[in-house]
Amino acid sequence: MATFQELACKEIIKGIEEINPDYFLSIPCSTVAPVIQHFENHDKIISFPVSREEEGVGIAAGISLGGKVPVLLIQDTGIGNSILAITTFVKAYHVPMLILVTRRGGFGEINSAVYHFSEPLPQILDDANVKTFRLDYRVPLKEWSVAIRQGFQYAQNTHRPIIVMFNIKGGAAQ
């Protein structure tokens, strides 16, 4: 039987394909490896890795300002590497951008350091007024692709960065 992670990755791929972006930028997180692999070999969407999340946010912002559609996929610790760019550029300059974020920390986390950032992150984003939607086991998987598509549309309609964050590890709410 397919695992929760496999099913979640399929939904994420579906959501991104429905947006049909021009560019897919990413820094890998092991939980979404199949998603990145899928877009690396895509015939229509141009996919490339970035060296740091801040750099990815800057490039995606340039793509968006130029009238094309980027989607950025990073892990939540990457927000720590990019929050200045998200707030003082993307948000301040009203650049529409969907940022997909995988969740670390919480039950199932084996890393002994990342929780110091991952756990307070929702509060940090709230305080920074960066609108974030969180998907976890409470949202039926078939709704994930819908949420990703709507997150994209919301970013366009409200002219700002929108984060859609997913917890693929399952378990209790973080």
């Binding site: 021009d22 560019y23 801040e54 750099e55 946010v57 800057g58 490039i59 995606a60 912002a61 340039g62 793509i63 968006s64 300002l65 130029g66 009238g67 094309k68 980027p70 200045l84 760019a85 003082t88 550029f89 301040a92």
Partner: peptide, 25 residues
């Protein structure tokens, strides 16, 4: 001309994204 008022260091990154998007303009 787009004037950046903060985000020190990000200008070249934005320029890279923009030059990709404007390839056919």
């Amino acid at each position: 001309h787009l004037y950046m008022v903060d985000t020190m260091g990000l200008t070249p990154s934005v320029g890279i994204g923009l030059s990709l998007a404007l390839k056919d303009k």
